[in-house]
Write a protein that binds this DNA or RNA. Structure first.
Lengths: 170, 170
DNA sequence: TTTAACTTTCAAAATATACTGAAAGTTTAA
DNA sequence: TTAAACTTTCAGTATATTTTGAAAGTTAAA
């Protein structure tokens, strides 16, 4: 027995929403994104509200956020007042865009604080200080490695990036 | 003017808590973890409650979760009833542990659903179906690449792993 | 201009998540 | 055993986040 397309879309939207919420992205935002990802045509606010049973206000704010993340764009059509919303379907672009934004919004500010805390001086005989200093500098190094890797990813082509990763298995 | 150790610790705990909450980890849990990371000695529930101004119940649940994530362990001392809690200070172990758990809890279930949805058959002339199928299979491929990379990371030594990544820059 | 179509805003309500604290449970030393 | 020392549980409360919907704002065709 095979799954209906409509049912499959619904499952996809739910799964994407759940994953998003587990990773600090608002569930509705992830669901709207998922809906647009499986829509060949751009959708209106009205259609999105309908498909996901959400309010106009919620749809509007969520779409604005998605545009802010660089994942969705507005389209307008000649002779129509309505705005249409369309999602970039290129998965690698999506991944890069999300990596880019989260790096900027969350990782970079933390690295700034870690740099500052790494510089805190103290008594080299004090275990309290030594433990603090070691943990902070180690985490700082790790965070910078992640940062550099994300930077590479953001600038990279998909095939090259995963190709290089795959070489690590050899 | 240099920062006090106590103030620096506080900043670290706050920064770690904020980062955690942005990445789907409970703020208190991240803060308890941070507190233990900068403590040379294992701490009691009482000391943790005091340091972070949290209740006994909260401390207990949070510590249990941290143990479940493999980031903290209980210690007991001869002749004492109290339990002491100690965090692994090896940053690479921490990163691997977090990667391992999130992969198991969140990524793997999504890949399972994507595998299922990738198999949904439909009309090759229907743009609705084609768009759905392309998005789902593309995301599935990406998720599997991430999965494989995390697997490599989990099994790897830090120097080898970042060394291989660094080679990507050359 | 007007006005209808459409978008945006935001205070209030709903929901989801996290926390408290006291009571119940457990353990171990005596 | 007892009982003090300690841990765990969980119903109720508090807090944080998300959502609603109606009013205000904007736009463009007539």
């Amino acid at each position: 027995m095979s799954m209906e397309l409509a049912e499959a879309k619904q499952k996809f939207i739910e799964a994407w929403g759940k994953l998003g919420s587990e990773w600090g992205i608002n569930r509705t935002m992830a669901q709207v994104h998922a809906l647009l990802l499986v829509s060949p045509e751009a959708l209106t606010t009205e259609e999105i509200m309908d498909a996901l049973s959400i309010s106009r206000g919620n749809a509007n704010m969520t779409l604005r956020d998605l545009i802010g993340w660089g994942l969705v764009e507005k389209q307008h059509r000649a002779g129509e007042r309505k705005e249409y919303f369309f999602a970039d379907k290129d998965t690698w672009n999506i991944a890069k865009q999300v990596a880019k934004e989260r790096r900027k919004r969350e990782l970079d500010p933390v690295i700034k604080i870690l740099d500052e805390l790494s510089g805190v001086k103290g008594d080299a005989k004090d275990p309290e200080y030594l433990t603090f200093h070691k943990s902070v500098t180690d985490i700082n190094k790790l965070a910078k490695n992640v940062d550099k890797t994300l930077d590479t990813m953001i600038k990279a082509e998909e095939n090259w990036f995963w190709g290089s990763i795959v070489k690590m298995f050899r």
